[in-house]
């Protein structure tokens, strides 16, 4: 189908400052319970270095002072084309729409958590008990949303099901962008149609070489990461910055 969209996102790590705004925005619009984060910001060694993270704490750079480097990797559902979670779900509760968005049918999930084990990106959270919230009223989008009759968003996910990033399917279907893209204060998130070769996301993927996370696993995510280019100051003192 020529006009079939395939939603994709490119996260520009050279712009990302690890501020967690996208994560908190996600938490807000989706009324995520305390302790649940569909979207999290990982402190990552810059792409070109083979270094392991320097610490289990965030914001700690790799390397040794003053030759250090630091980058961030906001990580939510990667909306894989060959999604392990979709493959392992025994009841088809996790599924991928034609537009590439991977969703969970909160009415079908049996809570076996096989998808949690199968996801290489660690982006799925299970409702271990009743949701705990900071406020006693529901915040965020506020109402159920169904895609093809399947309940893919509800402000309070029932106990015993798995939940995760929906790429704000309810907003996409209303012609808007995902909330994290809109709220990112660094302009680090680009969203668009990967099937359209002229879209900004397509250009970033095809021309700028935006990369997939754990590409070697062949999950083929529709979320990509753009890393920073080094800039030469012309005197051999080039500083490696984020993602350099």
């Amino acid at each position: 189908m020529a006009d079939q969209k395939r939603w994709g996102m490119v996260i520009d790590q050279s712009r990302c400052i690890g501020c967690w705004t996208c994560a908190v925005a996600c938490k807000e619009i989706n009324n995520q319970p305390l302790g649940y984060w569909w979207n999290r910001v990982l402190t990552a060694p810059p792409a070109s270095s083979a270094k392991a993270p320097a610490s289990e704490n965030v914001d700690v750079p790799a390397g040794e002072f003053p030759n250090v480097s630091l980058a961030y990797q906001p990580t939510a559902c990667q909306h894989c084309q060959d999604a392990p979670c979709v493959k392992v779900c025994p009841v088809g509760a996790t599924f991928r729409r034609d537009d590439g968005v991977v969703l969970i049918d909160y009415e079908r999930c049996i809570g076996c958590r096989y998808c949690v084990a199968a996801c290489p990106y660690g982006v799925r959270v299970f409702n271990w008990g009743d949701a705990q919230h900071a406020d006693d009223f529901t915040v965020g989008y506020g109402e159920d949303y169904r895609s093809d009759g399947r309940l893919v968003f509800t402000p309070e996910r029932p106990r015993g099901v798995v939940e995760k990033c929906t790429m704000c399917a309810e907003l996409l279907d209303a012609g808007q962008e995902p909330f994290c893209v809109e709220q990112c204060p660094a302009g680090a998130r680009v969203f668009g149609d990967l099937n359209d070769p002229n879209s900004e996301v397509s250009k970033l993927v095809n021309e700028e070489g935006a990369k997939r996370l754990l590409d070697e696993l062949g999950t083929k995510p529709d979320v990509f990461y753009e890393t920073a280019a080094r800039r030469d100051l012309g005197d051999g003192s080039t500083q490696s910055g984020s993602g350099a």
């Binding site: 302790g35 993270p53 289990e56 959270v125 299970f126 996370l213």
Partner: peptide
């Protein structure tokens, strides 16, 4: 988890 990056994975508990 396969992506060994800080701070890790959301626990789902608070």
């Amino acid at each position: 988890p396969i992506m060994q990056l800080p701070p890790g994975i959301a626990k789902g508990t608070y």
